[in-house]
Write a protein that binds this DNA or RNA. Structure first.
Lengths: 111, 111
DNA sequence: CAGAATCCCAGAAGATACTG
DNA sequence: CAGTATCTTCTGGGATTCTG
């Protein structure tokens, strides 16, 4: 790697990535959307029982603002929503799957 | 992927990974140690000007406790230390380099 | 140089209740 | 169902000072 790529004095690329996915639950949300393709709000809640409804809502909104996920609203009664990854969000797949892979190996070591 | 791998009700692999690297500066520290091989305390500080000395110290200690990095102390005057990745820490390389890669692409889109 | 100790506060996050 | 609003609690992290 040429050295001019590795100029981190005012923000390295890792920090850019962190700005997008470092929220406490963001990468977990993205992970589930990779696996499930699309999810409703309460489905995500069940998949992440340690994340409060409030927190889930906040993290979803931030991911939406950053164009990582998109929300489809069906104006039915009762209301239905569906969250999916955007095309930008899908580019995070290799990264998130590396996190899955490393986590699996780590869990094997520690059980 | 077989479904029995994707059982996330009580903690998905992504969450395991997050437990290790989700500290505010941890993945940045690991990133620099990948690039530089080993670093002294003040070198890391210069590479991460937005991280206070206190924070750097805390994050280094946690990474050390989790066996991701190791510290070598040279009992000279003035004291010298050197931080490196452990063998476990080195297994995070693909993940961190994916973060670098994604960050670079993201920065290209947003400039 | 490489940290540790102490003090302090904004903001993160929980609990609970409410709503279109 | 899919959130929002409000209140409260607690902790992450800055600023500063001290030390081997």
């Amino acid at each position: 790697m040429p050295h001019h790529i590795y100029n981190c004095a005012e923000g390295c690329p890792v920090e850019s990535t962190l700005q997008i996915i470092s929220g406490k639950w963001k990468s977990v949300i993205i992970y589930h959307l990779i696996k499930e393709k699309n999810c409703r709000f309460n489905e995500l809640q069940k998949l992440m029982p340690n994340c409060s409804r409030r927190m889930l809502s906040l993290q979803l909104k931030e991911l939406e603002n950053d164009q990582i996920i998109a929300k489809t609203i069906f104006p039915t009664v009762p209301p239905k929503t569906s969250y999916q990854l955007t095309s930008l969000g899908k580019t995070l797949t290799p990264l998130i799957l590396e996190m899955e892979k490393w986590g699996n190996k780590y869990n094997q070591l520690h059980e």
